[in-house]
């Protein structure tokens, strides 16, 4: 019963955090940008009619309210029907997938906007830094080496844990999953560091700021995922699997909190979107 109550609290927190609190912050940031940098002074920021952006904001807000409503309904129904561990695990996971849909939609919309911005870019000049970008320009060595240490410690942990011969234990498959995830993160980071500039107006400083933030978030996410894997294995070994849904819900909240850390409006230089701005 304790584990069910804990899960209910965690699931309620997951609904409030990912479908109400974070979306409301993102909507407030959108409003801040719309009011502080309107089309009259920053025309390059809005390749489409301004009304389209207001509609997008409204759709995003409504989508999250609908998802929050679904979450509350699922939680309410689940309080009155017997819930097994698998059901709670599935609830946390499937609802997390639904919760991130608006974020994915926003990301896809931003990509489309940037494409449009590139095609409408009136400037004929392009500027670049004549300095080589290195990993430690965007990532603190301490965080990088901590992430590497956590990753290596996970290999040691799995190698040590194999001696107990649990039938459910996946062994080095866990390492493969974590390695795959880290390779994925590294590819994204490399693409941000050396890939094509998607925003034609973005200044070099802004690009570096965003890449720095992304690198930090990815390292923290990698550490969080590895720790979650260790916690899950421990819970299974200690016959406390009933607490896994609770741990999973908390884990998803950490992940979603980390992932939205890249949306920092105050870090950006909006002067580049002025009509009379110089090439960046």
């Amino acid at each position: 019963m304790l584990e069910q109550n804990l899960f209910s609290i965690a699931f309620l927190s997951q609904i409030i955090l990912a479908s109400i609190y974070i979306p409301s912050r993102i909507v407030r940031r959108m409003s801040f940008v719309f009011e502080t940098y309107p089309p009259s002074t920053h025309p390059l920021l809005y390749p489409k009619p301004f009304d389209d952006y207001i509609k997008m904001q409204q759709r995003y807000r409504v989508a999250n309210w609908v998802i929050a409503g679904i979450g509350f309904s699922v939680l309410a129904v689940s309080m009155f029907v017997p819930r097994g561990r698998e059901v709670m695990n599935a609830m946390a996971f499937l609802f997390f997938l639904v919760q991130i849909l608006p974020l994915i939609w926003i990301e896809a919309t931003v990509r489309k906007e940037l494409k449009l911005m590139r095609s409408l870019n009136p400037r004929t000049t392009r500027t670049a830094e004549l300095n080589r970008r290195k990993l430690f320009d965007v990532l603190s060595p301490a965080l990088f080496w901590t992430t590497v240490a956590v990753y290596l410690a996970f290999w040691v942990f799995i190698a040590w844990f194999r001696q107990f011969d649990y039938p459910w234990f996946g062994g080095f498959i866990n390492n493969l999953i974590i390695t795959g995830l880290n390779v994925f993160f590294a590819s994204i980071l490399l693409w941000f560091m050396y890939g094509k500039k998607l925003n034609p107006h973005q200044s070099t400083d802004d690009r570096m700021r965003i890449t720095r933030r992304l690198a930090t978030v990815m390292c923290l996410t990698s550490i969080a995922v590895t720790l979650y894997a260790v916690i899950t294995i421990f819970l299974s070994a200690e016959d406390a699997r009933a607490f896994q849904p609770f741990a999973r819900s908390v884990y998803f909240q950490v992940i979603i909190l980390l992932s939205v850390q890249t949306y920092r409006v105050d870090l950006l230089d909006f002067d580049v979107y002025r009509g009379d701005a110089q090439a960046t």
Binding site: R126, T127, Y194, G195, K196
Partner: peptide, 21 residues
């Protein structure tokens, strides 16, 4: 003197991507 002997230059790919060339 903005670039001194021994200073590193961006890789071909980095510069090409930054300038969209």
């Amino acid at each position: 003197g903005n670039k001194k002997p021994g200073d590193a230059l961006p890789s071909i790919r980095q510069l090409a991507n930054d300038l969209n060339l």
